[in-house]
């Protein structure tokens, strides 16, 4: 047996420990599944943590109804293959109001169909421990976030009252009505995620890989013509290009990048290796696509 502890083995062990600890102390846990690559890694780790049982919790997807259709197909296929319970929650109030990102813009859409929806879903199902795939390297403010993050009865976070976390001893005690968000991937970076997907051969949504797709320029972003809810004038201007996506969300709000990368090694090369060698120790300007990455902070977590 190979006793050598690579960084990925250690990160995996840490994440599994966190997932089990959260579940062991929870009354009603759930895994928030957003279908993206980080969620794919989370799901993989959850499967490992409880093998040969299935994870003792359902997955929950907050569906804004504007996700890429390939994401929904992937979600349904994966959960069926793994035999897991899936809860799909849609904010019906938003549907009634006819919330549409093309009309109302990203902020209103995100607030109502994601953030509000999540709070309502948690109230409905009374989940007390919510596992999520956020990473600390995603944005600076998360560098100080705890692995176990407490929310009061109104799902609010009190940053002045965070509990210190020492060793792997997590204080999961809470009062009735309070809940905990748990982030097992806290110490993973973007590179770690891709390396692990490659190493473990983890299925991800095909949208991450380059392919010829119909796209159109929309407010400076290249978006996919995913269905006929795209306004007519945009659809008329669409063209076929070889593109892929770095992050996945609602298709009208997620920019494609022009790319030929159609395998995980090629993606790693494109996003990490090339930039790095181009830069040669000097600061470079980051591109617009990169800044989309920041919008990934989906109000969720």
């Amino acid at each position: 047996m190979d006793d050598r502890m690579t960084h990925l083995k250690l990160l995996e062990a840490e994440s599994i420990y966190i997932i089990r600890e959260a579940v062991a102390e929870a009354e009603n846990p759930v895994l928030l599944y957003s279908i993206g690559k980080d969620s794919s890694v989370m799901l993989h780790l959850a499967m490992k943590a409880f093998y040969p049982s299935k994870p003792p919790f359902p997955l929950m997807h907050i569906d804004t109804t504007w996700k890429f259709s390939e994401m929904i197909e992937f979600r349904d296929r994966r959960t069926r293959e793994l035999g897991l319970d899936l809860i799909v929650y849609i904010n019906e109030e938003g549907i009634k109001k006819g919330i549409n990102p093309f009309v109302h813009g990203s902020k209103v859409h995100t607030d109502i169909m994601k953030t509000e929806a999540l709070k309502k879903a948690l109230d409905k199902y009374k989940f007390d421990v919510v596992l999520g795939g956020a990473r600390r390297d995603e944005e600076k403010s998360r560098a100080k976030e705890r692995v176990f993050s407490f929310r009061d009865r109104k799902h609010q976070w009190d940053p002045k009252n965070q509990r210190p976390e020492l060793w792997n001893v997590y204080n999961c005690q809470k009062n009735k009505g309070e809940s905990i968000r748990v982030f097992p991937l806290s110490n993973w970076t973007e590179l770690d995620i891709w390396l692990y997907i490659y190493l473990e051969n983890i299925p991800i949504v095909p949208l991450y890989f380059a392919k010829e797709r119909p796209v159109v320029d929309y407010n400076g972003t290249l978006i996919l013509i995913d269905d006929d809810r795209v306004p007519e004038e945009l659809r008329r201007k669409s063209r076929l290009e070889t593109v892929r996506f770095r992050t996945l969300g609602c298709y009208p709000l997620t920019g494609a990048i022009r790319s030929e990368a159609s395998s995980v090694p090629e993606i790693i090369k494109e996003t990490l290796l090339t930039k790095y060698s181009e830069r040669q120790g000097r600061l470079i300007d980051y591109d617009q696509v990169g800044s989309m990455e920041k919008k990934k902070v989906e109000g969720y977590f």
């Binding site: 390297d137 970076t189 973007e190 996003t271 930039k275 790095y276 040669q280 470079i284 990169g290 990455e293």
Partner: peptide, 11 residues
């Protein structure tokens, strides 16, 4: 030299 794009941006 291994500050990746995302981290660089954040900085």
């Amino acid at each position: 030299n291994l500050v990746f794009e995302d981290q660089l941006m954040a900085l």
